[in-house]
Design a protein around this nucleic acid. Sequence first.
DNA 1: TCGCCGATGTTCT
DNA 2: GAACATCGGCGAT
Length: 186
Amino acid sequence: MIAHREFESDVVLVAKSLLGGRLAVRGCEGRISEVEAYHQSEPGCHGYRGITPSCEAMFGPAGRLYVYRCYGIHMMLNIVCEPEGIGAAVLIRSLEPLLGLGVMRERRGHVDDSLLCAGPGRLAQALGISSADNGACLGAGGISVILGAPDPSQILSAPRVGLSRGVDLPMRFALKGEEWLSRPMG
DNA sequence: TCGCCGATGTTCT
DNA sequence: GAACATCGGCGAT
């Protein structure tokens, strides 16, 4: 098992550090442009009620993937953070597509390029993420992540998208001037 | 351009 | 039954 100490940290810090970083999945790659943080201490998080079979992967170890199905249709890709035993993960919400555009367009049904990876369901579809990737270890299975080095003064925060609980917490993050978003930050 | 709505599967009440 | 970390199509502005 590969140690992923860089992800074994406060989920908000990791979420911010991912901005501008790279996500590579089996030949496709993108620049991470929008993320959300989830922590078991707040009610918007799947791990809020403790560990269950469906959210088990969120409880670590850090540096693994937590993939689940949303609204019966879309796969959501999360990177697990914090030491093992704590439920915390970063949802990747948008990417700027960089490599493997042809495959992504094919999987997405040849939509406009601006919509290839703009949204958690869209990017998972473009990258070919499935429930088989749940619990996978970064660096194995053809999936890898490189952290960015964003200027803290350039990071915007906003409430998370689509939740009914934990709506007051500003745990959605993107860089100022970002063009590759699922929706505007403001 | 905006907002509503159905699709679709798993979990919770 | 209802809720749900969404998306795309359709009809109304």
